[in-house]
């Protein structure tokens, strides 16, 4: 699924935070978006999902303008979003966290849950536990699995490695890599540069609410703008 952001501007009240970002995420591609704390990465993703209104600009999925759609409609159009901070429904069990998304519009298909659990088999042992009691790493795996239950064509992840122990980061890396190989388009926001560059083909670097560099990861000059990355 191709995602195009065109001159997107987002403000909190009068304070503009994203100043006109254009980004083209090609079908089947893997793009990482990097940048230091507070440059507007999460804000941009929230604008993409309609959690925040756009001040200006347009968002297209496979050429179709989705700027006017509500947040749930955008999700149902094929975007799986894993927000920053390994968020879960804390009082629902892990199983219910997946089931509620499976049944988001009437009875859904259990095979979607089973497939998501195949990506993170360790979750199977935790299904009965309230999600609020999972560790950060477990919660992150649950959060990604929950996004997969929607069978998204485009997976958007916001700093999935933040605060997660190395062994689980490796599991998440394998999972994301396999999802990409299976044909999913992926947009990854990440400050862990090595992780991002191991996975992605394209990169974009944000600073002060703008994209200041972009290109192929194969030819990236990390040293050249290390001050813009949290290395």
């Amino acid at each position: 699924m191709r995602l195009e952001l065109e001159d997107v501007r987002i403000a909190y009240g009068r304070a503009e935070v994203v100043f006109g970002v254009s980004l083209d995420v090609a079908h089947h591609s893997f793009t990482c978006l990097m940048g230091r704390n507070g440059v507007g990465k999460t804000t941009l993703l929230n604008g993409l999902m309609g959690v925040l209104p756009l001040k200006a600009g347009a968002i297209r999925l496979d050429g179709r303008d989705i700027t006017r759609l509500s947040t749930p409609q955008r999700a149902r159009a094929g975007i799986g979003y894993v927000p920053q901070g390994h968020q879960v429904f804390p009082y629902l069990t892990a199983r219910e966290n997946l089931a509620v998304v499976r049944d988001r519009a009437g009875r859904g298909d259990q095979s979607a849950v089973d497939d998501a659990l195949d990506v993170f088999p360790a979750l199977r042992k935790l299904l009965g536990r309230p999600a609020g009691l999972l560790s950060g790493g477990q919660a992150q795996q649950l959060a990604i699995a929950r996004a997969l239950v929607t069978r998204p064509q485009l997976l958007v992840l916001d700093e999935p490695t933040e605060g997660i122990q190395p062994s689980i980061i490796l599991e998440i890396e394998d999972a994301i890599s396999a999802l990409h190989s299976s044909g999913m388009t992926i947009l990854l926001v990440e400050q862990y540069v090595e992780f991002a560059l191991r996975l992605a083909q394209r990169y974009a670097v944000m600073d002060g609410g703008l994209i200041v560099h972009s290109g192929d990861t194969a030819s990236i000059d990390v040293a050249g703008f290390s001050d813009l990355l949290a290395v």
């Binding site: 999700a75 927000p83 429904f89 804390p90 509620v100 998304v101 988001r104 519009a105 929950r146 996004a147």
Partner: peptide
């Protein structure tokens, strides 16, 4: 429990 998360999950 989490309205925003529910919305971005398509509920």
């Amino acid at each position: 429990q989490n309205r925003e998360l529910a919305a971005v999950s398509g509920l």
